[in-house]
Design a binder for these strands. Sequence first.
DNA 1: TTTTCGACGCAGCAATCGACGCAACTCGTA
DNA 2: TACGAGTTGCGTCGATTGCTGCGTCGAAAA
Lengths: 315, 315
Amino acid sequence: MADEALSAGAVARRLGVAVTTLRTWHQRYGLGPSEHVPGHHRRYTPADLARLEIMRRLTTEGIAPAEAARWARQAPAVLPPERVGLKAGAASVRDGGGTAIPVGRAGPVARGLARAAMRLDSVTIGRTIAEALAANGVVATWEGLLRPVLAGIGERHVATAGLIEVEHLVSRCVSEAFASVARAHPTVGPPRILLSCADEEQHSLPLEALAAALAEAGVSYRMLGARVPVAALVEAVNRTGPAAVVLWSHTRATADPHQLAALLAVPRRPLLALAAGPGWRADSLPAGVVRPVDLAEALSLAVAVRDSLDQSTAG
Amino acid sequence: MADEALSAGAVARRLGVAVTTLRTWHQRYGLGPSEHVPGHHRRYTPADLARLEIMRRLTTEGIAPAEAARWARQAPAVLPPERVGLKAGAASVRDGGGTAIPVGRAGPVARGLARAAMRLDSVTIGRTIAEALAANGVVATWEGLLRPVLAGIGERHVATAGLIEVEHLVSRCVSEAFASVARAHPTVGPPRILLSCADEEQHSLPLEALAAALAEAGVSYRMLGARVPVAALVEAVNRTGPAAVVLWSHTRATADPHQLAALLAVPRRPLLALAAGPGWRADSLPAGVVRPVDLAEALSLAVAVRDSLDQSTAG
DNA sequence: TTTTCGACGCAGCAATCGACGCAACTCGTA
DNA sequence: TACGAGTTGCGTCGATTGCTGCGTCGAAAA
């Protein structure tokens, strides 16, 4: 007597899709209520709902909707307990559209992640990212999965002035996943690398990616986070005396070269100053500042600092 | 309270509905006298009356009758805590001079945490928090450790215009710790609770505390994060149709009651709207909004909604 | 006699229906 | 590199369905 027969709206809400999409799935793929009189309202039984949830799960794994629907339609009443071991399914069927997030040729996993993001499904988002991180490491996951999806969301965001909640949600999930990596890889030795965002800079995700990559490589670091005023940065450098400082700037507005100059004017100036992020202009950087082009380069530079320090202390 | 049996007419007059409606509610939703012989007159006990009053309150607040009835039927004793006076924050601090962080009488662990924060020692910060969470749970750790320390840092921050980097670092560590709690407690079922910050509101830590507490209690939720524009919030509510929405506002500047009004104006409005945080003014809240005074109360209110099913149809 | 019961019906309104179309992503091709 | 073809999610529109509160009526209870 409890939950027999859900209305279309209730099912749509539960799945996180629009009501119209449910109707489309019914008429295009035959995924509807098992008993439905045309013209009358749809009433979804638990079995129908289970079929739709298979559809949703497969699409969030990056399977093309048409194929996912074929799977879901002939689904046995007993659903196989998850874990079928995905891994870049060969799902290169025509795929597109609607209110989707563009991920280019970033692969089916990225497509699935984008879909989960659109549904605000933080559980799936988190799981997808964690699996990718475990399988491919921080750098590859960042370049091949997270950056494309985040860029796609940002693109849509500026174009439609919407999707802000999606952007925040994914950012949080990514941030949590990176933190999880850092926690899973305890580092040894004192942190000699300081990571900080530029003044007023709100985007710290790429810096967190670097932090996670460092943790993965066993390098300890110190992360200050977003929106660090120059005075606070100088103060932190003075207090902790790092060998290398990475200063992230996402947009030109936050990329004030004076910050770098102030960094180099500190009494015990760091060995290496990295100006990371697309905000910095190569021609306006003070002498002695290095500008890595991507995450991998920043990582190798930072690792090099660690190694040189080890060498100097050892010999 | 033995034989306070009210007749149908009396109850109808008291509730302000027609007698016929009472009969309809009985046969359609099962909201009638607990003991009733068909054909005989209905005799409503005080308990029956209380159930009907819940029904009436929810329907007049705009909740779909079928859903309101379900809520009223299986609501054992969820009495909304009426207006507990807001106590002024006892801000009498007098502890440690120099560059220490005032933590009041929060105990030695808090002092240790504050010291680690001053050293920017994220490893120790994270470990301290994790241990406290494991030992005392989310609510106690938040109220007894994290909130005092964060408040102390904020106090010093506004007083000395420094310590911003400390504040960010600790925030990040707390955030990570909460995320870790959430990941360690997998929840089941679709999320029926939506957590969101008010528009322009940047502080999301207390909301993350609530999220972690919910996860600890096995309740699934959806967290939108900081700085959620009204349009995005409404959009998310429309899409996912949560049973309860928690809107956090830290300062008065971000506590625009219009946001709550917009929340309640959504087609299928949530059963419960919580205005959380010190920003909200009790006298300016729209009717039907509950204002929890602390984390524990917000938690218990949210947990109460856990079992509520939606489905707004059937007959 | 007065009030309530159960059954039936009706009008208002929100949700949904089916049809159509739009926008946008991917991919193959030039 | 640009462009058309194939897909796909979803907004819109006028019509319909179905839920909801309540009035009415003959019979039964108080």
